[in-house]
């Protein structure tokens, strides 16, 4: 029955209510075998609830969860072949690192020598072999994160669920762990489902991303699709930064009557208007200049509408505040978001 075309996870008409609030609304989703899939959204958007429905910590109010083609909607977490890396790591404080990692095998009845060997291997995968006999309280946040990861992969699940696993780490460590996660996923070949509210993290790591808002998926696609062709103003605003113009604003600026968005890095600043065909030039005044290191963010007021421009130093020196400038862009870079 099962083949590589069977989705690792298939959700059909999934719904979850808590009392009268609807956390997840009529969700259909297929996640492929071996995919790095991210669920991205602000807090309260339902992404974590979907993860908990897949893991079995919550039972669906309606709909079906298929895991590898098998209906697991009513199964307990211990009967589902998925494992979770928890946001707070949830390491057992009374066990040392290797006992934590071996726990899944222990409750499956694997013999002591065998499970400790498998746990040591999982620990080596996350480069923590040296800390096997430490207690979780003696570890740093990053190390606990790795132990949680090792514990989840030690039982070789079909799908690994990661609930904001990098949220508690500082920036440098987070970037390092992102690279390691991606490598790990390639090496193990198992499906990763990654929940995050950090759009940059989702874009860098994922094969595909689902953007959640108010309990439903706003858009599902590759990171490039989400960034370059956002389907709604919510996605355009949440994934990266965008200049989003309402219908009246875009009427004034570019003469169209729909909501449009354009990325700040698609805009150029110049002292004179550009007359190239297909290029729009808007006269404006620099309101704010923010130094970012690699570039400068310039906010220009055109027709009383603030427009954010990402100005690279390659394009010339950054303008002064209150200078008169032209903001130019190609018409084809505008993304129409409907009305």
């Amino acid at each position: 029955m099962r083949s590589d075309t069977t989705p690792a996870i298939k959700l059909v008409g999934l719904q979850k209510k808590f009392g009268s609030t609807i956390a997840v609304e009529n969700l259909d989703l297929e996640i492929r075998q071996g995919e790095f899939f991210s669920m991205l959204g602000p807090s309260g958007s339902g992404k974590t609830t979907v993860l908990r429905l897949i893991a079995g910590f919550e039972l669906a109010s309606a709909g079906t969860v298929f895991l590898d083609g098998k209906d697991v909607t009513q199964s307990a977490p211990f009967d589902r072949d998925v494992n979770t890396v928890f946001q707070d790591y949830a390491l057992f404080p009374h066990m040392n690192v290797i006992e934590n990692v071996a726990y899944g095998l222990r409750v499956r009845g694997v013999g002591k020598a065998e499970r400790l060997a498998a746990a040591a291997e999982a620990l080596a995968t996350v480069q923590l072999a040296a800390l096997a006999s430490r207690k979780p309280s003696e570890l740093s946040g990053g190390q606990r994160q790795r132990v949680a990861l090792a514990r989840a992969i030690a039982v070789r699940p079909k799908v690994l669920l990661l609930d904001e696993p990098l949220g508690a780490l500082d920036l440098k460590l987070r970037e390092q762990m992102q690279i390691e996660l991606k490598e790990l996923q390639r090496k193990l070949g198992i499906t990763f489902i990654f929940v995050t509210h950090d759009q940059e993290e989702a874009l860098t790591l994922s094969d595909r991303v689902a953007v959640f808002n108010n309990g439903r998926i706003e858009q599902l696609g590759t990171p490039r699709e989400l960034y370059e062709e956002p389907a709604s103003s919510f996605v355009a605003g949440f994934v990266g930064t965008s200049n989003i113009f309402s219908t009246s604003e875009s009427q004034k600026l570019v003469g169209t009557s729909s909501v449009v968005s354009i990325r700040p890095e698609r805009l150029r600043l110049s002292e004179a208007a550009s007359h190239d065909t297909g290029t729009v030039s808007l006269a404006g005044q620099v309101q704010e200049v923010i130094y970012l290191g690699a570039a400068v963010r310039v906010i220009v007021l055109c027709e009383q509408i603030p427009i954010t421009v990402l100005h690279q130093f390659d394009y010339g020196p950054a303008p002064e505040r209150e200078a008169s400038v032209f903001v130019s862009f190609k018409r084809t870079d505008l993304v129409s978001l409907g009305n």
Partner: peptide, 9 residues
Amino acid sequence: EASSDLGAK
């Protein structure tokens, strides 16, 4: 939850 997730009844 972690214990149940790892397969413990």
